[in-house]
Design a protein around this nucleic acid. Sequence first.
DNA 1: ACAAAAGTGTTTTATTTACACCCATGA
DNA 2: TCATGGGTGTAAATAAAACACTTTTGT
Lengths: 229, 229
Amino acid sequence: MTNSREYFKSAISVDNVIFGFDDGDLKVLLIKRGEEPFMGDWALPGDLVLLEEELEDAANRILFDLTAISNVYLEQVGTFGGVKRHPKGRVITVAYFSLVNKNKLSPKASLFAKEIEWVSVKSIDYLAFDHFEIMNDCLAQLKQNLKLKPIGFELLPEQFTLTELQLLYETVIGESLDKRNFRKKISKMGIIKDLNKYQTGVAHRPARLFCFDEEMYRRAVDEGFTFEI
Amino acid sequence: MTNSREYFKSAISVDNVIFGFDDGDLKVLLIKRGEEPFMGDWALPGDLVLLEEELEDAANRILFDLTAISNVYLEQVGTFGGVKRHPKGRVITVAYFSLVNKNKLSPKASLFAKEIEWVSVKSIDYLAFDHFEIMNDCLAQLKQNLKLKPIGFELLPEQFTLTELQLLYETVIGESLDKRNFRKKISKMGIIKDLNKYQTGVAHRPARLFCFDEEMYRRAVDEGFTFEI
DNA sequence: ACAAAAGTGTTTTATTTACACCCATGA
DNA sequence: TCATGGGTGTAAATAAAACACTTTTGT
């Protein structure tokens, strides 16, 4: 082993795949790079981690700078360390994804980005750096965890209809579900609360509104319940 | 943003949780630290990543130095970046776990470690740095993936009996399984090959030997099969 | 002949799937 | 009154769970 000073030469960044859901369409929040390298290309929002900053704090900082929201669902996906992934030196990046309710925020240009936009996941086939690969890994993990943890609700408004919930699952997982079976399964879980309220202003029978109930969920888990779609 | 030189001051390490299975006991390969900090404590084998080294190469290097084997199953679990996790500076570590057939190797002291030992997972309640937390995360991911991917075979000798396979699952997942149902499930998968050979030298009816068949597995997957225990 | 683990099917129960019609609202 | 999506139950098929005795070897 050589002198350890030889090693303290890397930089750590965090890249954040921010997912939002919009009427049958899964989107990610992208920025247009305003500087080299990859100037003008779409990229994931990310930044170098400060020397005394926790990784998760960095991820939350990036998210807050772009959206002015905090306390959102955040999950680490993996670390990408390709030697050549950044032209300026060894930059290892830790990828996170977060789930936000798209209607609750209006992303704004920031230090990071002059241009910022919600882009439909299915329309993306290239991103700067290795960000396309990172996004795909995050998407794969989202798909998997959406089935195993009650995180889908994070993408919806607080009050939602069962059809909206079903559409979310169908969109992200990529297969269609039977309406009656889906509703049966969700009801049996006992983790969403019927608000006894209804949609308004729709040109059809208005749907009941529900919300996810954290407390009910915890109680169910204590009694041996495990979420699964 | 300040000058980027301010950022290239971190070090990256890789820590490797090497799992082995031994007659009803899941073990990890630990080293006893020969220097400060945490001198004399048990720790995960790990090392700083060289400036031009891929993360996965570093993980394989650590493994090879300790065991002289390569081409083993390796999976990234997560990255631990606690600001204070290393007293010498900002060291972010990427955790991997690997699965090896314990009988195929005799670990040897190396640059890293004067002392090296297989330690039963269930007997561990402390490790140097944040290694105990890292090990537990790796264990949790192993448990999960063992049910979803055919990786259990990596922990067994090439030729194994169905009882050995079952014991492996029972041990790692932590619940006992019905012998007949287990065998039925495994047979139906069609991914292990009956070698038409038998155990020898046992004081009871000798068991048939099987091996995992990569090709059969691929073919099954192509036909829509998904592994699940 | 005894001990020790191998091997083997059937029945019951639980879960999952498939499927079609009436309801409430706005236009 | 028409179009639109909301809401509801049952039967069939499939998968999972429970369960006990015979076989083969070494000692």
